[in-house]
Simulated scan of single mutants.
Amino acid sequence: MGSHFILVAIAIMALAFTIASASDPMFVNGKFCNDPKLANANNFFSGLLTPRKTSNPIGLTVTPVNVTQIPGLNTLGISLARIDFAPYGLNPPHTHPRATDILVVLEGSLYVGFVTSNLENRLFTKRSFVFPEGLIHFQFNNGKTNAVAIAGLSSQNPGVITVANVVFGSNPKISDDVLAKAFQVDKKVVDHLQAQFWWPNN
């Protein structure tokens, strides 16, 4: 009799949870999912065609188009970014922990590449490229005119880790003893790098 009571109690709790969650907002991938009946065209639109200013220290502006900007991307496994480059603008070495990235140059000329994992550390470069998930890669406008590229990413929330920003701009700072040994430089070099403002490029 005791085991029947437990089974009935579990069934009642499961039914109550189902009823409660049917009326509560639903979250998928940590993002709120709109009721499909309430969706509108703005849930699927971005200003990707609008050029952005590049008058900053790295000569670059990234316009992300992911689930944060377009709620309709949630669960679709894709996102985009428009990247505007000033002449000699740089998208510094960075990685996307949750996405492979394919880059297409629309205007201008870019020097792009990625580095394979330890122990090889091989550099691959070209004009347009696929950057495998998690590998460090970069884009540099080596021309005298502006450049524009579109990146397609295999996640609605790819994330970005810019190497210099996280290593030298962390809060609190990584010990200069650690970084001096890791990069095999004097602590004064590390202190100088940690004192810089690391532009939030993504």
Results as ranks from 00 to 15, higher is better:
residue 92 P to D: 05
residue 71 P to Y: 00
residue 59 G to S: 05
residue 51 P to F: 13
residue 71 P to H: 01
residue 10 I to S: 09
residue 175 S to V: 08
residue 162 T to F: 01
residue 42 N to M: 12
residue 111 Y to F: 15
residue 175 S to T: 08
residue 9 A to I: 13
residue 23 S to W: 13
residue 82 R to Y: 07
residue 129 F to N: 10
residue 109 S to D: 11
residue 91 N to F: 01
residue 15 L to H: 08
residue 15 L to E: 05
residue 159 G to C: 15
residue 51 P to G: 12
residue 148 V to E: 04
residue 114 F to W: 12
residue 105 V to D: 02
residue 10 I to C: 13
residue 136 I to V: 15
residue 158 P to Q: 04
residue 113 G to K: 02
residue 3 S to K: 09
residue 139 Q to S: 03
residue 45 F to T: 12
residue 164 A to H: 00
residue 198 W to M: 01
residue 195 A to D: 12
residue 74 N to M: 09
residue 147 A to I: 06
residue 173 K to H: 13
residue 148 V to H: 08
residue 59 G to T: 04
residue 172 P to E: 07
residue 79 S to I: 00
residue 174 I to D: 03
residue 183 F to C: 08
residue 136 I to F: 05
residue 172 P to C: 08
residue 198 W to N: 06
residue 65 V to D: 00
residue 134 G to Q: 08
residue 178 V to I: 15
residue 59 G to E: 05
residue 188 K to I: 06
residue 202 N to S: 15
residue 146 N to V: 05
residue 84 D to V: 03
residue 143 G to T: 08
residue 196 Q to Y: 11
residue 76 L to S: 04
residue 43 N to F: 15
residue 169 G to S: 12
residue 153 L to N: 01
residue 184 Q to M: 10
residue 149 A to M: 06
residue 40 N to Y: 14
residue 114 F to C: 06
residue 142 N to A: 08
residue 129 F to S: 10
residue 82 R to A: 09
residue 94 H to W: 06
residue 138 F to R: 00
residue 86 A to C: 06
residue 86 A to D: 08
residue 82 R to N: 04
residue 162 T to R: 01
residue 150 I to Y: 06
residue 43 N to R: 04
residue 197 F to L: 09
residue 144 K to N: 10
residue 185 V to K: 06
residue 25 P to L: 03
residue 136 I to K: 02
residue 126 K to L: 08
residue 33 C to I: 15
residue 7 L to H: 10
residue 170 S to G: 08
residue 3 S to I: 07
residue 4 H to A: 10
residue 8 V to I: 14
residue 81 A to S: 11
residue 200 P to A: 10
residue 81 A to E: 02
residue 148 V to R: 02
residue 36 P to I: 12
residue 100 T to L: 07
residue 5 F to T: 10
residue 66 N to H: 14
residue 168 F to E: 06
residue 25 P to M: 03
residue 197 F to W: 08
residue 112 V to Y: 03
residue 33 C to P: 00
residue 112 V to F: 04
residue 178 V to M: 15
residue 161 I to T: 13
residue 44 F to N: 05
residue 152 G to A: 13
residue 66 N to F: 09
residue 120 E to F: 14
residue 55 S to E: 14
residue 42 N to V: 07
residue 167 V to P: 07
residue 45 F to K: 13
residue 105 V to P: 03
residue 190 V to S: 03
residue 122 R to E: 09
residue 88 Y to V: 02
residue 118 N to W: 07
residue 161 I to P: 01
residue 110 L to I: 10
residue 44 F to Y: 14
residue 41 A to M: 08
residue 45 F to P: 03
residue 102 I to M: 13
residue 74 N to P: 06
residue 151 A to K: 03
residue 162 T to L: 01
residue 28 V to W: 08
residue 138 F to K: 01
residue 23 S to R: 06
residue 117 S to I: 05
residue 68 T to G: 11
residue 164 A to G: 01
residue 119 L to T: 12
residue 138 F to S: 00
residue 100 T to H: 04
residue 31 K to C: 05
residue 119 L to E: 08
residue 113 G to T: 07
residue 142 N to K: 12
residue 20 A to S: 09
